[in-house]
């Protein structure tokens, strides 16, 4: 398993997870060489990540604008946006990272159990050489997913 193979699974998983659980349509995706520096309109960034271990190990995360995050949270929880708290937005984005990572990892054939850490708010990854970044354009806004593999041959 190469990092690029695993990273190649992420777009398909993202469409599936966002469609089934967040009622969001992925319109397209683009591989990026570095994390976006700013969001349109200066929207605040919500970023969550986790560590994963199994047949391959590493770190995975998502980042998106606050407005997109609130929209996703409302869809996921089935409530109106004004009713959503910041804590609920954080929980929903953390769960998005969890499901995306778990969905992609599960498609990697292997013998070892998949272990995912609890998603946490993380700073945006910077100055990492072997990072895979994919930005998804959705009908709720842009969502960026990143992946760093660690200690894998």
């Amino acid at each position: 398993m190469r990092a690029s193979d695993f990273a190649g699974l992420v777009p398909e998983c993202c469409s599936e997870v966002l469609g089934a659980m967040y009622f969001v349509t992925v319109l397209g995706w683009t591989a990026l060489e570095k994390m976006p520096e700013a969001l349109p309109g200066g929207d605040a960034v919500v970023a969550f990540g986790l560590q994963f271990a199994g047949d391959i190990s590493g770190r995975f995360g998502v980042c998106l604008g606050q407005l997109t995050a609130r929209s996703l949270a409302a869809n996921f929880l089935g409530v109106d946006e004004p009713e959503i708290s910041s804590r609920e937005v954080a929980e929903v984005v953390g769960e998005l990272a969890n499901m995306l990572c778990g969905s992609a990892m599960s498609r990697v054939e292997g013998e070892r159990k998949l272990i995912l850490s609890h998603p946490e708010a993380v700073p945006l990854p910077a100055d990492i050489e072997d990072i895979h970044i994919v930005q998804f354009d959705t009908d709720s806004g842009a969502i960026t997913a990143w992946l760093v593999l660690e200690g894998n041959s």
């Binding site: 969890n98 778990g102 969905s103 599960s106 498609r107 013998e111 159990k113 998949l114 995912l116």
Partner: peptide
Amino acid sequence: STDSSEGR
């Protein structure tokens, strides 16, 4: 579970 592997 998020783990959709058949083995799990």
